[in-house]
Amino acid sequence: MDFRRIEVIFLIVFFSLDIFLFLSFRNSQQLVSSSSTNTSTVTEMRKRNISFGNLDTKNGYAYYLGSRPDNSLAQNIQKLRNQKVEYEDVNHTLVSTLNSPVTVTANNRKQIMNKFVKKESNILFGNKYKYSPQLSSNSQIVYVYTDSLGEVYDKTAQLVFSVSDGEVIGYTQTYVRSMIILHERQAIKSEKDVVTNLYANSEIPNNSKISYANLAYTKLLEAKDSTIYIPVWFVTIRNKDSKVATTKKVNAFTGNIIKSSTNGDNYSAQ
């Protein structure tokens, strides 16, 4: 593989992001301004019966990341056992139906599936995936790709098990062999900034609970046969009466609320 050529491609793609980001963020996202009254906002939220844990005030750092299409799943498919497997070349997706479904309950499914995932004859590169309760639902158990740079909440790098009548019957898997840093690290918004600004913009209703507030990478765009990822805060809010949960997404670099998905994914939190 010509790594020098790949580096050049990513450099070209990254510099083309400047204009794209300016236009897309201005047109499709709502700007969330920083607030100097976070403390009073937190107090007001509690008065309105909005529940949440301790909000981290630390402003960390993250990157623009990139990946190239990878055929590692197709190249290792012969290692899998006791399942019917197909590989979709266009989307680089492995689709599996288990010969013997795995019985799980709401209480034990994480423990059981963690063991299942770690066995190479069950799942390829299983040690690269981590269970995500935030993205899982009654009908799906979702594992996300993770490495030293962080977690990826995106269908380009995900392991999704299908659950029917208390049994895991199969899964779909996508995989990226590695992430490439496209630019030096940049400061990101803190958890507290994100949550209080969501409330200030009427995105958190009264009588609700913030179940999760996780930082992960998700796909921004595809260009020149490459995928570009940005850091996003995924904030899941559950209504205390209806129990219905929604997940808000916020660009961690800018603080912009992402009104429409950058990749077309709709996540349903458990």
Rank of each mutant, 00 (worst) to 15 (best):
N38F: 09
N214A: 08
S34G: 12
N122A: 05
F15N: 15
L220K: 08
I50Q: 01
P231G: 12
S100T: 04
Y145C: 10
L221H: 06
A157R: 04
L182T: 05
L221C: 08
R5C: 01
L221K: 12
F3N: 12
K115F: 02
E222T: 13
P101E: 04
G60M: 08
V13N: 15
I123Y: 02
G60Y: 06
G66L: 02
N239F: 10
A200Q: 14
K224C: 11
G66I: 03
L23Y: 11
V85C: 09
D241M: 03
T37Y: 09
K115G: 02
F253C: 09
Y199E: 07
E88G: 11
I50R: 02
F161P: 07
Y229L: 07
E151G: 01
G60E: 10
T97K: 12
A216C: 06
V152H: 05
S33N: 07
T43N: 14
I77G: 14
R109D: 00
R185D: 15
K58H: 13
G126I: 00
L21P: 00
V195N: 05
T97R: 15
S36T: 04
L65V: 13
Y63C: 10
K115Y: 04
S137I: 02
F116D: 03
V195H: 06
N99M: 10
K119D: 12
R46E: 14
L94K: 07
P101I: 02
F52L: 05
F15A: 09
R109A: 00
N91P: 02
S178N: 01
E7P: 03
F15I: 12
Q111C: 01
T37M: 06
I77F: 15
